[in-house]
Computed example of a mutant assay.
Amino acid sequence: MEAWPDDFRCPISLEVMTDPVILPSGHTFERRSIQRWLDGGHLTCPVTNLPLPPSPPLIPNHALRRLIAAVSPSAAAAAPVPAAGGGSADEGKEASVAAGAPSSVLALLSLAKSGAAGRREVLESGSAAVLLRHTAAGDEAAARALLYLSLDGDDARVGLVADGAVDALSTAVSRGGAAAALAATALTSLATVDVNKCTIGAHLSAIPALAGLLRRGGARERREAATALYELCKLPENRRRAVRAGAAPGLADFAADGSARAVEVLGLLAKCREGRQELCRIPGIVSVLSGVASSGNARAIEQALFVLNWICSESNELALEVIKLGAFQLCEALVNDDNCKIAKNAVELARTLKKA
């Protein structure tokens, strides 16, 4: 019984519910327990103490009832956890995730992965709170389930943020480990909604946690952290927050390792003065960007030229360094590129360097 999450227990009897019903106050109780409360003449909600209407309706919480049934000891032992991609590698990964996860989390993960109807069951039952607690504790299965829930549309994304998902995901990112990359990916999904960009960016831990993951994570963790920062930094205010959180050096290091996404985030940071000034202070930044501009993919080349132009506008010393690295020859080679954005950025960089 100690393994059952609090959300599955009746607030009155503290026992796992078998027939959960919802009061008009929004709280769920075991039918027998709340009926005894009401029959005893109580006119308030046992949780909130707010008044209830006369003869309040008891609405069956079908979604929560199915979830409780799904994680009963017999069901948890028999039910397999489906693989995300259907391949043997994914099945092995899911099995390793499942090995250390509570049965309640595994049932929620199965529902979240089963499709839109399953995700709605989890969200409407209020069981996302279970996943939030386990995600904050570093549970990979819970973080994966939250990621699936975030794919259920903008309303679900806003609702998850309102329920405290940013706290849980930021904590998981800060903790590192297996759940960190999934938590960063979930933050990316939540940030696709504009209002969430603002909420996540304003959170005290979210952007600093992503910046930290860039510095200490492995290749996958760094990639997901950079992608989350890219989505968040589409909002101008978040660019300054990312700079203050120390994201720029980590992005520059990741760009040096060949990450086109890191270069794209640097391009967003260069759009604010605070970001340009920080970029100018990073040792070796000119060499990194020149290397990307010489041999990266099209998007990376475009952004590397863009950032070089900005920082050379800020620092005459860096402009001279770029020239020594053969920037004029590079620009000359790119001005006729089929990609008009690359050609345009090459022309603008050449103009800036001529002023140095």
Rank of each mutant, 00 (worst) to 15 (best):
A168D: 01
G153Y: 06
G153V: 06
S170K: 07
S170A: 11
G177F: 02
V158Q: 14
G176T: 04
Y148F: 10
L160H: 08
D155Y: 04
R157H: 01
V166P: 07
G176Q: 04
D155I: 07
D154S: 12
A162P: 09
A156L: 07
V173A: 13
D154I: 03
G176S: 01
L151T: 12
R175T: 12
D155H: 13
V158K: 15
D154V: 11
A172R: 02
A172Y: 08
R157Y: 02
G159A: 14
S170V: 05
T171V: 11
A178S: 15
S174Q: 14
G164P: 08
V173E: 10
A178L: 01
V158N: 14
V158L: 15
L149K: 05
A178N: 13
G164F: 03
A172G: 04
R175G: 14
L169N: 07
D167K: 00
Y148N: 11
A156G: 11
L151V: 01
S150A: 15
G159T: 09
Y148K: 04
D152E: 05
G176M: 07
G177K: 08
L151I: 06
L169C: 07
L151E: 15
V173C: 14
Y148T: 02
V158A: 15
L151Q: 08
G153Q: 06
S174R: 12
T171Y: 10
V161R: 00
G164N: 03
V166H: 05
L169F: 10
A178G: 14
S150M: 03
L160Q: 10
D155P: 03
T171Q: 15
G159S: 13
G159Y: 04
D167M: 04
Y148H: 15
L169R: 01
D155L: 13
S174L: 12
R157V: 03
T171P: 09
A165M: 06
A168C: 03
G159E: 13
L151K: 11
R175Y: 05
D152M: 09
L151H: 02
A156N: 13
G164R: 01
V158G: 14
D154K: 10
D155A: 15
A162E: 15
L169T: 03
A178R: 10
S150T: 04
L169H: 03
